[in-house]
Simulated assay, not measured.
Amino acid sequence: MSAVAIDKRAVAASFSRASSTYDQVAELQRQVGSNLLARLPESLQPRALVDLGCGTGFFTRALNARFGRAVLGLDIAEGMLRYARAQGPEQAAWITADAEALPLRDSSQDLLFSSLALQWCPDLGRALNEARRVLRPGGCMAFNTLVEGTLGELRGAWEQVDGYIHVNRFMPLAQLQAVLAGAGFARWHCEVEAHVLHYPQLSALTHELKALGAHNLNAGRPGGLTGRARLKALTAAYEGYRQDAGLPATYQVAQIILYK
């Protein structure tokens, strides 16, 4: 996402507020993170590893279980870290940190794992430079991120209602690939997964996005409450996408492995 499109303070505040509800509705997040974890080579045995954008610590715990090592959980949202700390594991350390300015020494880590966090960075290239800086030679970064096409149905429905930005904007795949190619890693691989969730009605989707802390965080979003007339128009527009399974919401997820 571009620097003009997102406010880190708004991101941190939104996810902090969502800390107690996030895990209740994070089925997709767990699935795509598990897919990323499964992509790590079986031969990988990191001595020092980080869960970057750890959120509630779900994958911090999974990394700890897989590698039997203490994991450093970093997140920009202090509320998420408080929740994660209460869940454990005891071996983890939790630090408030910005992915674009990591509080880690050069060449100090073997693995950086980050699931659905880096799409909230205004400058992904800077975050990748920081990752490369803190990785040891031969180290691995595994991350996934949302790309353009995510929540396309919701965006299309809103476009029928007004001209405001109501849905988070994500980087086009070609732009992401260009950023990856220019990040200075020895080699990398990127594969896109499409996930389509279905909802009985629009309110179920909007409730889930709010519970995740991932509702509209763009600059240019309308101020104040959404009026009844606009909500009624949005509901009618979204009904045009209805399938037998319900109202679809598509997520385009890029799964990426990079080696220093």
Rank of each mutant, 00 (worst) to 15 (best):
D7Q: 07
D7H: 07
D7A: 01
K8E: 02
K8G: 02
K8L: 13
R9V: 04
V11L: 03
V11A: 10
A12Q: 04
F15Y: 14
S16D: 02
S16Y: 06
S16I: 05
R17E: 13
R17T: 06
A18D: 01
S19W: 00
S20E: 15
T21Y: 01
T21A: 05
D23N: 14
Q24N: 10
Q24E: 13
V25F: 05
A26S: 12
A26W: 02
L28S: 04
L28A: 02
L28H: 10
V32H: 08
V32L: 10
G33Q: 04
G33K: 00
R39D: 11
L40A: 02
L44V: 08
Q45G: 14
Q45H: 11
Q45A: 14
P46Y: 00
P46E: 02
R47C: 05
A48C: 13
A48R: 15
A48I: 07
L49G: 03
L49R: 06
L52K: 00
L52T: 05
L52P: 01
G53R: 01
T56F: 01
T60A: 06
R61P: 03
A62F: 01
N64M: 12
N64A: 15
N64C: 15
N64F: 12
A65G: 12
R66F: 07
F67K: 06
G68E: 07
R69F: 08
A70R: 12
L72P: 00
L72C: 12
L72V: 14
L74R: 02
L74E: 00
L74V: 12
L74G: 05
D75K: 04
D75A: 09
M80P: 08
M80Q: 06
M80A: 14
M80Y: 00
R82H: 15
R82S: 14
Y83E: 15
Y83S: 15
R85Y: 09
R85N: 10
R85K: 12
A86K: 15
Q87G: 10
G88Q: 05
G88K: 07
A92H: 03
A92N: 04
A93N: 13
W94I: 09
I95H: 13
T96R: 15
A97K: 10
D98A: 10
A99S: 09
L102R: 09
L102A: 11
P103M: 03
P103Y: 07
L104D: 03
L104I: 09
D106M: 08
D106R: 11
S107G: 09
S107T: 14
Q109W: 01
D110H: 05
L111P: 03
L112V: 13
L112R: 06
L112T: 02
F113A: 05
F113D: 09
S115T: 07
S115I: 02
L116A: 04
L118H: 03
